[in-house]
């Protein structure tokens, strides 16, 4: 009987501990710039998904360079990146944890976690992406991107701000 009582008390204590865990994560109202660049990046990755060269050309600058930690001295040109991306079927993608800093009215730095599922791969790959965008008139163009894969074991923080792509 004492053992049962002890078990009941332990179960109760464990529940109480769960109850007393901190406040929930606040529900954020994203900035106007996050809304803009989330839409632009969805458009960009959808253009890759659909092999829509016209949209890709509109969103990616002529002098665009993509840099990765594995080849820091060998950036991919816009053409090389387009060829690479269009050659690998993008099954689904998701963008989360976006932050945008407007450095000037016409320059913004953007960062986010990209989760993509390619070809017949079973799992998805997460990368941390940093981009530089410039604006001419009302049109924003991506001029530079840095993409760093996130190791599956790495914990980049809570999986927040996941916006479904509609393609998941």
């Amino acid at each position: 009987m004492r053992k049962i009582l002890l078990l009941v008390i332990l179960a109760g204590a464990s529940l109480q501990s769960a109850v007393s865990q901190g406040s929930p994560t606040p529900i954020q109202t994203t900035t106007r710039l996050v809304a803009i660049f989330a839409d632009l990046n969805y458009e960009l990755f959808q253009s890759i998904q659909k092999h829509d060269a016209a949209t890709f050309d509109r969103l990616v600058g002529q002098d665009f360079e993509l840099r990765t930690p594995s080849e820091p001295d060998n950036p991919k040109s816009r053409e090389d990146w387009q060829q690479l991306e269009f050659g690998r079927p993008l099954q689904s993608f998701g963008i989360s944890q976006m932050a945008v800093r407007g450095l000037r009215d016409d320059v913004a730095s953007v960062s986010f976690v990209l989760e993509e599922k390619r070809g017949t791969a079973i799992g998805s790959q997460k990368s941390f992406v940093v981009q530089a965008w410039t604006r001419e008139g009302e049109s924003w163009t991506c001029q530079e991107a840095y993409v760093s894969p996130i190791a599956p074991s790495a914990k980049p923080g809570p999986m927040r701000d996941r916006r479904p792509s509609g393609k998941d």
């Binding site: 406040s23 954020q28 900035t31 932050a99 800093r101």
Partner: peptide, 9 residues
């Protein structure tokens, strides 16, 4: 300013 303009909880 970089992620949000406000929040509630």
């Amino acid at each position: 300013c970089t992620r949000y303009c406000g929040w509630h909880t």
